[in-house]
Design a protein around this nucleic acid. Structure first.
Lengths: 181, 181
DNA sequence: AGTTTAATATGATCGCGGTCATATTTGTGT
DNA sequence: ACACAAATATGACCGCGATCATATTAAACT
């Protein structure tokens, strides 16, 4: 059945939101169109009225997740603390889209990779802008190193089976980053 | 046709080797049993004579890749340089299995996750053992932080589309790690 | 109000990949 | 040598998921 233009925009937005969450949670391959549409309260058939393909959805979902996450601004200190917290580790669906999907985009078509690339660049730029200018001579270097360490630690903490080791990776990386810069 | 027991051991080993390379290169989902067996010079049917399931193959492939990579010993200095080199970034199939697959094991059954967990723990332990004891009070902390930063930077460098940014992530992370500890 | 058209629902198609049944060939032990 | 068993080859089955064709319903416009 037909719906309002307003309704359609809302539907599209809900599709993107749910896709963004599901992709982060389960990975691109494990999530089907039907699952995304059902999560958005629709049926699978209508999907192609909104997007040309699953691949297009992946690209847009990455972009949406990135802007969504970029909105949550903090000073670098607390940003690192939140990023490397058990809460963030355990909440993949609402967490950093790069930690959840960056390793995967290697296997995706150019549009998806490009969306991720844009997101990563903007995250680095944002972090560099947020850093105080007295920490080190090169704020961009500091931003890249900090971001890499955070992302790597989160991925490792999520990959590991043993809770003790997982917690240790988070806390020790946080401590290590506090001493170094 | 039947083959020598020796031949069978070789076949199993080749299946594992090719699986390990292919999984790293393309990811678990994108590689099928048939492709692995063909790469090993066999046909898909014989697979279940060697492994009970694809999942079992994934777990063993991770273990094999980990021991294989652990054999390449260097002092920490050159290890970091090699790890964060464009050569390593561009050679995923023979590179660090954690950088290639750690983010993926979140979606795999326990046996696969466990194999990855064991690998990560051994990598951290090995790195801690290799570190000189005068760098800092806590070698384990140093090892965890260093490993997280390396892994994160490599994943980001591989995810990014723009070669300039990718190179920058590698070199700046290397420089950042040299200043910090 | 009536006609048109757009958004979604229903159902079908098609290919792919994991798994298994059966056949075939050849090493292994007597 | 012979019988047996094991490793692999061939081919089929099965379910799943992306995509598309058609139907249906209600908004949009005159």
């Amino acid at each position: 059945m037909r719906v309002t233009q307003e309704q359609m925009r809302e539907n599209r937005h809900r599709i993107l939101s749910e896709a963004s969450r599901l992709f982060r949670e389960k990975g691109f391959d494990a999530v089907g169109i039907a699952e995304v549409m059902k999560a958005a309260g629709l049926t699978h058939g209508g999907f192609y009225g909104h997007f040309a393909s699953k691949e297009e959805l992946m690209a847009h979902a990455i972009a949406q997740a990135t802007t969504e996450v970029s909105g949550r601004c903090d000073d670098p200190q607390t940003l690192v603390a939140k990023y490397l917290s058990p809460a963030h580790r355990d909440n993949v669906a609402d967490g950093c889209p790069m930690a959840a999907l960056a390793a995967d985009v290697r296997h995706r078509p150019p549009a998806t990779r490009s969306a991720m690339s844009v997101g990563i660049r903007s995250q680095i730029d944002g972090l560099a802008r947020a850093l105080p200018d007295d920490v080190t001579a090169d704020r961009r270097r500091e931003a890249i190193g900090t971001y890499a360490a955070m992302l790597g630690a989160l991925i490792l903490a999520r990959a590991v089976d043993e809770p003790t080791l997982s917690d240790e990776i988070l806390s020790e990386t946080r401590a290590w980053m506090a001493t170094a810069p």
